[in-house]
Write a protein that binds this DNA or RNA. Structure first.
Lengths: 108, 108
DNA sequence: TCATATATTCTACAAAGTCGACTATATGAC
DNA sequence: GTCATATAGTCGACTTTGTAGAATATATGA
């Protein structure tokens, strides 16, 4: 137990939580861009998602092909319970390191 | 500009802020252990500190040898202004991804 | 001058981050 | 049917970060 999540892994996992049933490569990429301004290729997202799945932190399933104007079927992703735990732990670690520092640099 | 900090880099940088004038390898290692429960070798800390310095995110200076019972002089570290900015940005990204999710998994 | 305590560096490898190029698969037009 | 085109995902490869075992450096007091 006790895996340490990478920094991008955390962002991707948060995106999965936010997106719920609509979480797949393209939307995850978009969500991170919109919320953080961070740009990256789609391949980066897919690689991360795939590695998280291998570690058992996320599940995936291929949806029915129901697109509006063609295109491959989506592969949906969601956190597993182990994934949620891992994310919570990472967040806790960061928070305990950040706690009380506000005065020293004005984060908020 | 716009460097993306690794996950451990963030923890180490927070430790520097917390420790202020008393920030050096050993205390950084200890601070992270105490606050997060995370174990790692000293070498891990030093490597990270060194890389952060190469990137201009932290400064260092070797202190006077004023130990109580022998031992090498300490190498002190502190964030540069660029380092603070980088850390703030990373924190902002994480926060904006986490914002509003509380209901979905009870972090707090 | 040496046993010992404190602190940092070296060498190496594993894991995470990143992307260019390519593949897969639906749809509508012809 | 079959092709141009749009959407979604995979491969191969390289760079950065994370990680530690072993070695080195340097004070002190006996």
């Amino acid at each position: 137990m006790e895996k340490n999540l990478g920094e991008l892994e955390q962002l991707v996992m948060f995106a999965l939580l936010r997106l719920g049933d609509d979480a797949y490569g393209v939307t995850v990429h978009q969500e991170i861009l919109e919320r953080t301004g961070r740009t990256m290729s789609f391949a980066t997202i897919y690689t991360t998602l795939s590695r998280l799945e291998n570690k058992g932190l996320v599940d995936s399933f291929v949806g029915d092909p129901t697109p509006e104007r063609g295109g491959r079927a989506k592969k949906h992703f969601a956190l597993t319970s182990g994934g949620k735990q891992a994310l919570q732990q990472s967040v806790r670690a960061l928070r305990s390191m950040a706690r009380g520092l506000d005065a020293k640099w004005g984060t908020q």
